[in-house]
Structures are given as C-alpha cells and as structure tokens.
Design a protein around this nucleic acid. Sequence first.
DNA 1: CGGTATCCTGAGGGATACTG
DNA 2: CAGTATCCCTCAGGATACCG
Lengths: 117, 117
Amino acid sequence: MSKDFSELFPNQNKRQKDFQCSIGFTMTVIGSKWRAIILWHVLQSQLIRYGQLKKSIPKISHKVLSQELRNLEMDGLIERIAYATIPPKVEYIPTPRGKSLEKILQELCVWGKKYFK
Amino acid sequence: MSKDFSELFPNQNKRQKDFQCSIGFTMTVIGSKWRAIILWHVLQSQLIRYGQLKKSIPKISHKVLSQELRNLEMDGLIERIAYATIPPKVEYIPTPRGKSLEKILQELCVWGKKYFK
DNA sequence: CGGTATCCTGAGGGATACTG
DNA sequence: CAGTATCCCTCAGGATACCG
C-alpha cells in the first residue's frame, strides 16, 4: 500500500489491503449495507443535517448512521460541518471525491429500479 | 415484494426485502465481498471454466466461489453450463442481465484504480 | 441534537474434507 | 474437475443507554 494511498484513505488501514482488482477496493469504500445509500442522500441534497438524514433513511440505526458518516468522512467523500451551538447542529456536504461517485450511484439506482418491483 | 420480482430474483427471498432506495437492492446483488469481482471476470472472458476463474481470483476460497456462482446464477446474471464428462467440466457465461451490469462494474474498476495505488 | 460506549446476535465467509 | 457439507470464527451492524 503506497503512502499516497494511505493518505487519501486513512480509513483503509483497518480494512482489507490486497485486492484482486480495483473493484474490490471500490467495494470497501461504498460496498457496505448503508454507505452508498448515505452518500447518495448527501449528494442529492448537497447539504444535509444529521437529523434530516436520519429521517430520510429511517431503517438505519442511530449508531450505524453516525459510524458510517465518520467512515465516509475519513475516506474523504463527505465533509462534516459542526456548529458549536446548543442544541448542536451538524451538516454534511459532499466533497469533490464524493461527487465523483455520483454518476455510479445514479446508475446503481437506475439498475435497481429496473429489476426491483 | 411483487411476484415479478420474486421470479426475476428467486435468491432475494433469503435477503433483505425492504430497501430505502433501489441502490440498496442493487447492493444485495453485487455488494458482497466477491460477487462483483466474479461477475467482472465472467464478463471479461465471456466464457470461463470454474478452474480458470479460481486461478484468476486466487484469494477466494473454493467454497465461496462455488457459493457465489450459485447466487449469481440464481439472480440470473450468469448461466452455468455443465458437461457430463469425466472429469467434469463447467463453464460460466454472462446473461443479458449480467451484461447490463458491465458498464457499472467497469466504472467501479476505473474509480478504484484512480484512488488505489 | 448529535456522538459515543457497550453489549449482543447472526450472517458472511475461511479451512478442511468427502463425493461423484 | 467441480460441488457440497461441516465446523468455526470474525465482524458488521442492531438495541440500548448515557454524554456534551
């Protein structure tokens, strides 16, 4: 694993380090149960608060949503903006790297629609 | 879950049945650790024997490769052709539905290459 | 409001061996 | 050569509760 790589995806240090092909790598970034869906919602709204995200994805648990938002942030796909107010307010926006996945997520969505229901 | 859906993806009966959006569904089809990679290899070669596939993806275990090939077959993404010879010979080819994922897999591959190594 | 800690369960998937 | 069965273990992710 190159230095560049580790810097781009610090989160990857915890994950599988050798891939058959780069599809395997991409899958570690968006291939979990919720990560693609969360990123998709962030991309759709451009800027979204935690609570709104939770409402948009009601079946995800509080813990997992927080957790995956951290992962997406650590992989540089979204940016977290926290306001030091009471009550707290946190917003998420996509980064350029996150936006670079928009087309793919769009296609995953279209493909799914075609065959689901 | 509609009747059509069950018929198209009998394998889905074992899986999550409600999705936030269709990305979630697509992920159940190709989102496992190996499924996208296997399908990718089948698509690349157009027709490939079990043993060749195993060599192409050395890190996958025998059991999991068989298992995922079944899943891909049950989801209608690949077709299995078995010859009743001794020793046995089994070939896998992509179906039209499998081919409909080629572009997406290609993009997953390109995206991964861009950031991995 | 949003994050984190703890605990727990189940499914994914690895190793191995037996079968035709 | 290819498929299946068994065993086992890790870890993703769900429920709950407490914190700032």
